[in-house]
Amino acid sequence: MAQGITVVPSTRPTGSNRAASLWSQMRRYGWGYLFVLPWIIIYLAFGLYPLALSFYLTFFDYSFIRPEDYVFTGIGNWLRGLTDPLFWRSILNIFYNQVIFIALTLGLGLLSALLLYKAIRGGKIFRTIYFMPVVTSVVVLMAIGNYLVSPGGPLQALLLQSGILHQPIFWKFSNWLPMPVIALINSWKWFGVSTVILLAGMAAIDQQLYEVAALDGANSWQQFFGITIPQLRPQLFFLLVINVINGLQMFTEVFTIGYDVYGGPNHQALTPVLYLYGQAFDRSNMGYASALGLLLAVLIAILTLLQFKFVPSEA
């Protein structure tokens, strides 16, 4: 930072001037430390300390019911997590859900961004509408979605009328339907984020690229796959990374749509965070729940690193 103090013509001797400026600089540093202090205190108390505690807890059987009973179990909780079929079922469920969700949300986002980009007038109204579900709460949207896709709801009524379905589907109790249905509701809620981010990316693409391609005789499809998609790589990459990190930690969606902490009788809607919530607050296994949290975090870290390594993020 430039120190503009020299701008002022000084009448005082240089020595005391330097001392004064040093003193004022020290005072500024003091303010600087003071301004970042709240973050440091809060992060120590509710960031670093819990992290260390979490790691520590994984080596114990610890419950709120009998807090005085710490039983050291070594890496027992880790091994238990790695061999727990319910934990793996939850991982499988969330992967199944996320593959469908990410495909839908990126596809819908790309399509709507493209349409908004082509719409010369009135685009703003549509953008505002598409973004509305994003600001609405998950609890409310899951409740509405639940009614819309329920066996007596409008979506199934429409499918029955058109002959696609022959009888109502009680999807919540099915073994493999809850995850795609929740992914569908979720993509309706979140695709607006992709729309806004991809639209901003499209607006930033150099128009000359299209003009040159058009002169070379490239049609709209060729321009879309040859220019638009490659130019949007940073945005698509960002959305992919963010969706994977957030999606793997899904909880509120399955919990508020009406599943218990075990994701239903056949664990058909069990997600990792739902499972660790159940272990912590239903079974009071804080140590085991901490181990599950760490395993999930490791998995997220590995997936994020893999994306950085193998998915091209630059145009």
């Binding site: 108390a45 509710f46 960031g47 300390y49 819990p50 992290l51 505690l53 979490s54 807890l57 990190i245 793997l248 930690q249 990792p272 965070v273 660790l276 919530y277 912590a280 804080m286 729940a289 901490s290 949290g293 760490l294 999930l296 975090a297 997220i300 870290a301």
Partner: peptide, 13 residues
């Protein structure tokens, strides 16, 4: 750091 890591220990704190 994913938020899920803080869920249990922050509750304990």
């Amino acid at each position: 750091i994913p938020g899920v890591l803080f869920l249990i220990p922050t509750y304990v704190v």
